[in-house]
């Protein structure tokens, strides 16, 4: 397959990367527990209720929040609905092909969704305008624009930043249960701000925020979503390798220590 041109790392290069790592140095000069430069911009898409563009090094992801009024799920009639979608589009990387979502698109969306849902980032219980009949459905769509590794952390940051700055129409009830959607906008009710930290394993060494080349060489990765109270609200191991239990804890500790720094990049939670 043509994608193999872009995913095969020649052995000498692979060995060079690993031996540099043993000296504590990564391909781009970073230390094992160092993130690339992170930028977060919000409110860039006027037509969206919320939006954010995040870059971590050369990786760029855009996320948008759209809301619409709809019926709730029958097993949660008094809650709004959260739907997260992601698509790895061809412009972001020569290895992405056009087509329906594949396992990577689905995994990315579901991990971000779990991180948001488990931490109750969006207060779904405040989105039931008429419980059982009319609730806000919040769609979060994530599109990587440039893939240089670590789509999880960038996508998570973009999704959360878009959610934290999202504004939805104010609503009032007229009569029994007619919903009046007003012109005035209010912030989407939020209650937490998780950050996603991905740790890659190469040999015995753990590095945070792997760039694309490191992802090609790594044995496995583990992503932790950490909420404001330092609780783990999502975990996802990926890749063909395995972790010793101590390595899982070491990776978790790396994530816990770096979470505050990532959270500083998020816009502050609206009052």
């Amino acid at each position: 397959m043509s994608e193999r041109i872009y995913t095969i790392v020649p052995t000498p290069r692979r060995e060079a990367i690993l031996s540099m790592l043993k000296r504590g140095e990564r391909v781009d000069g970073r230390k094992p527990d160092e993130y690339r430069e992170i930028t977060v911009e919000t409110g860039i898409v006027g037509n969206a209720e919320g939006s954010a563009r995040v870059s971590i090094g050369h990786t760029k992801v855009i996320a948008g929040v759209k809301v619409s009024m709809g019926t709730p799920f029958s097993d949660a009639p008094d809650k709004g609905v959260q739907i997260v979608y992601a698509e790895l589009i061809p412009m972001a990387s020569p290895i992405f092909e056009p087509g329906p979502p594949d396992e990577n698109d689905v995994e990315l969306a579901r991990v971000v969704d779990r991180g948001l849902r488990s931490s109750s980032t969006i207060k779904l219980e405040d989105l039931a305008v008429v419980p059982g009949r009319h609730v806000w459905r919040v769609f979060i769509d994530i599109y990587p624009l440039d893939h240089d590794g670590n789509l999880f952390d960038a996508s998570g940051l973009a999704a959360v930043a878009a959610v934290l700055t999202a504004k939805i129409p104010k609503t009032s009830i007229s009569g029994e249960s007619t919903v009046v959607v007003e012109e005035e906008k209010v912030p989407l009710p939020v209650g937490n701000a998780p950050v996603f930290v991905t740790v890659a394993k190469m040999g015995d060494i753990l590095v945070v925020d792997p760039c694309y080349e490191e992802e090609l060489v790594m044995d496995a990765r583990i992503t932790f979503a950490i909420d404001k109270e330092d609780r783990v609200c999502a975990t996802q191991k990926g890749g063909r390798g395995s972790f010793k239990p101590e390595e899982v804890i070491r990776a978790l500790d790396m994530a816990l220590s770096l979470a505050p720094e990532l959270r500083k990049k998020l816009p502050s939670t609206p009052i």
Binding site: V232, C233, S242, F243, L252
Partner: peptide, 25 residues
Amino acid sequence: MPRLGEITLIQSDGLFTREEVIEAL
């Protein structure tokens, strides 16, 4: 992998503290 003692899958949803992760493992 039981003999090697290595973890090949770990996921989570809900909320866990660091200590709970260690205990769960």
